[in-house]
Structures are given as structure tokens and as C-alpha cells.
């Protein structure tokens, strides 16, 4: 286990808020004398879906990697569940293992294959168990990565711009899939993105990271199903964009670069 991370099974458990899934205090990270993350406090409740918004280079992926336990160079206090999964921006499938082999990679027990097949079914890829990753489309590969994350029944799911490399139509399908899966499995989620609309569509709470600090922490009150035409939706979008330093009146509606306008 990396330095600076304490998992929930260790004695430090008592420091956790009784119902907390993630508890972070004064997280800092420097790269070559430049402090990228400057004292971040973060709490995520079990089952809560939190989106972390920020411009590129704002340090959002650094925070996610810290919570994943991939970065031993952070300082501060971090408590996270022992069972956690990461979906990266790239699917990161082992090319030499078939789809099922990728999903159950690292899981043990005789039921692993059955659970893996079940997870594949959940992401709509039943019957693809013995396909090679090279035969999958970008969206399918990312759904396999999602199945691999879910098969471990994580208490914390870390999503690092998982739809960043997908086309607009595939993204829409992935959004509803993620919502459906989170309703069923109920993990705490930290969803890192630079896409304001995506954050509002999916999250219970949105955090904006600027200059290495959380500059805005707001609950998403937009009624379900969330529609871009909703007044509250556009109001929140304006607020978030302003916080990110984008002026809608001068920069028009192409701000997010997100071409999804057909919902």
C-alpha cells in the first residue's frame, strides 16, 4: 500500500466519519516544486455520486490517483474503502486476455467466471466473453472496463474521464448505463471530468477545482430526468462555467465542446 493512504480495514477506521466512504483532509501534491493540489478537504458519503470538475492541469486526476492509492507522493490524511475500483480514460484491457479474462482479472474463487459473465451482461456485453479486446469498439472496450470495475463490488468507484475518448452518441448511452449501474450497486463515486453538462447529468454533488483547491461545492438540485432544457440545469451550468472561468456571453454555447444536443 502506498504511503499516505490508510484503508478502512486498518485501525484508523475510527477516524472515519461514521457514514463516510471517503475522508480526506489537507491533501497536497507537488511536482518539481510546483504545488498542483493545495490543501483539499473531501468527504464522500456511501452511495454518493460526486463530480470533480476542473480545467485540464487543475489537479483533478492527481486527486483521483491519490484516492486510488496510485500516488505515494501526496501529503495529508486520506481514508478510503479497501474495496475500490478505477475506470481510466483508456479502457486499459490486457490485449492477450479475452474479455472475460479481463473482467475477472485479479478476482479469485470458483464463482469468479459466473460473476464476470453477470457483470458483462449488466453492461450489455453478454456473449462476448471469449472475444479478444482488439475486436471491440471504443465504447465496448470501455464497457468491459466498467464491468471489470463493478465485478469487485467496490465501495468506492473512481472514474477518471471515462467517456473522454468516446463519440457523442456512445457517451449518451454510457451516461445512462453508469446511472443504472450506480443505482443498482450503490458505490460512492468520484467522477473526474472537464465536461460541465456531464457532471450535472450524473452527479449528486459537483465540486469545482481551481488553482489546486476546491473553489465550489454544490449539490445538484435539477429534477430527474435531467434535461438540458431545464431552467435549473442551465442556471447551474452558468454558475459552474463562471467558476471555471468561462464567460458564456462572449464565448457562446460551444463552451464545453460537447456536441450532445439531441437529448
Amino acid at each position: 500500500m502506498s504511503v499516505g493512504i490508510v484503508t478502512a480495514t486498518e485501525p484508523a477506521m475510527e477516524f472515519l466519519a461514521p457514514s463516510g466512504a471517503v475522508w480526506v483532509r489537507d491533501l497536497r501534491r507537488s511536482f518539481a516544486d510546483r504545488e498542483i493540489v493545495r490543501g483539499v478537504d473531501l468527504r464522500i458519503a456511501p452511495g454518493e455520486f460526486v463530480a470533480l470538475l476542473g480545467r485540464s492541469g487543475s489537479g483533478k486526476t492527481t486527486i483521483l490517483r491519490a484516492l486510488a492509492g496510485l500516488d505515494g507522493g501526496v501529503t495529508g490524511e486520506l481514508y478510503v474503502p479497501e474495496r475500490r475500483s478505477v475506470v481510466f480514460q483508456d479502457p486499459r484491457l490486457l490485449p492477450w486476455a479475452d474479455v472475460l479474462g479481463n473482467v475477472i482479472l485479479g478476482t479469485q474463487g470458483s464463482a469468479a467466471a459466473a460473476r464476470g459473465a453477470e457483470a458483462l451482461d449488466e453492461v450489455g456485453l453478454a456473449g462476448h466473453e471469449s472475444d479478444w479486446p482488439k475486436t471491440l469498439s471504443g465504447g465496448e472496450a470501455q464497457r468491459v472496463a466498467l464491468a471489470r470495475a463493478l465485478v469487485r463490488e467496490p465501495h468506492l468507484l473512481l472514474l477518471d474521464e471515462p467517456f473522454g475518448a468516446l463519440d457523442a452518441l456512445t457517451r449518451i448511452r454510457m451516461h445512462s448505463l453508469v446511472v443504472k449501474l450506480c443505482e443498482r450497486h450503490h458505490p460512492a463515486v468520484l467522477f473526474v471530468t472537464h465536461d460541465v453538462d456531464e457532471a450535472i447529468l450524473l452527479a449528486d454533488r459537483v465540486l469545482v477545482l481551481s488553482e489546486g483547491q476546491i473553489s465550489l461545492d454544490t449539490a445538484v438540485e435539477v429534477a430527474q430526468p435531467r434535461l438540458r432544457s431545464d431552467h435549473q440545469f442551465s442556471a447551474l451550468r452558468s454558475t459552474l462555467l463562471a467558476e471555471l472561468g468561462v464567460d458564456e456571453s462572449t464565448e457562446g454555447s460551444t463552451h464545453t465542446g460537447d456536441p450532445i444536443q439531441i437529448q
Binding site: 486510488a68 496510485l70 475500483s85 490486457l94 486476455a97 485479479g106
Partner: peptide, 27 residues
Amino acid sequence: PRFGELADVLGLSQWARIRRIVLPAAL
């Protein structure tokens, strides 16, 4: 090296790392 990260995230044992990742990659 991203596969090493993946192994970390999935909590693979040293042996699983060798068997599932290093050996097939070396083949």
C-alpha cells in the same frame, strides 16, 4: 507502465502480475 498501474488498482499479487501481465507481454 499503465498495466503496472492497473495491477496496483486491481490489487494483483506478485505472482498474478507475472502470470497475467509480464509473461504474456514477454511472449
